[in-house]
Amino acid sequence: MSVDLINRDPNCINSHIQCAFEDVLAEPEGVQSIDCVWKLSYSCFECWKNLCYKLTTLLCGCCIAASWGCEFASVAFLHVWQFTPTLKVLQINCTYYRKWWSLILSCCVDPCCISCGQIFHAFKREK
């Protein structure tokens, strides 16, 4: 599998990040700067945004990507080797305990409930 250099967010996980010039700066009708100022502002914004982003990704991107790679490897490792087997053990044991608890309830509690039900069944409600 190769890296797609064109579509770098194919699952749209960062679609909430709106940082284009038009998303950040806007002049409403009636309060607009001179056209050359607006064009120069656009150029400065795009230049500095791209320069700063590329510089910080150059300095930090690989280290941060390595850190996240380790983090997700740890998460996968824990799920495969710890959490899933633990849940399976609990599932097996809880099935046994559920049967055991059901047997105790049916032997000890059910007779009491049935007796109470029989006592109250004898009372008739008058209309």
Rank of each mutant, 00 (worst) to 15 (best):
S2A: 07
S2H: 05
V3E: 14
L5V: 04
L5G: 07
L5S: 04
L5K: 08
N7W: 07
N7P: 03
R8C: 10
R8Y: 08
R8A: 08
D9Y: 02
D9Q: 00
N11P: 04
N11C: 07
N11D: 12
C12R: 15
C12K: 15
I13H: 07
N14I: 09
H16N: 11
H16R: 03
I17K: 03
Q18K: 15
E22L: 03
E22C: 05
D23S: 01
V24T: 02
V24W: 04
L25Y: 10
L25Q: 02
L25W: 06
A26F: 09
E27G: 02
P28K: 00
P28T: 01
E29Y: 06
G30V: 01
G30R: 02
V31Y: 05
V31K: 01
Q32H: 02
S33A: 12
S33L: 09
I34Q: 09
D35E: 14
V37P: 00
W38G: 04
K39T: 09
K39A: 09
K39W: 01
L40C: 05
L40F: 10
Y42D: 03
C44V: 14
C44H: 13
F45L: 01
N50H: 04
N50Q: 05
C52H: 10
C52G: 01
Y53K: 06
K54Y: 05
L58E: 10
L59E: 06
G61F: 00
C63I: 05
C63W: 11
C63A: 10
I64Q: 06
I64N: 07
I64H: 01
S67W: 05
S67K: 14
S67M: 09
G69M: 06
C70A: 10
E71K: 06
E71R: 07
E71Q: 09
F72G: 02
S74M: 12
S74D: 15
V75P: 01
A76G: 06
A76D: 14
H79F: 11
H79A: 11
W81N: 12
Q82L: 14
F83T: 15
F83P: 00
P85E: 00
T86R: 08
K88Y: 07
K88G: 03
V89F: 04
L90R: 08
Q91T: 14
Q91I: 00
I92C: 10
Y96W: 11
Y96G: 03
Y96I: 13
Y96S: 04
Y97M: 07
Y97I: 06
R98T: 08
R98Y: 10
K99F: 11
W101Q: 13
W101K: 07
W101T: 12
S102N: 12
S102T: 12
S102W: 00
S102A: 09
S102C: 03
C107N: 12
C107K: 15
D110T: 11
D110A: 15
P111R: 00
C112K: 12
C113K: 06
I114T: 10
S115M: 08
Q118L: 13
I119V: 15
F120P: 02
F120A: 00
H121D: 15
H121F: 11
F123S: 02
K124C: 05
R125A: 01
E126G: 04
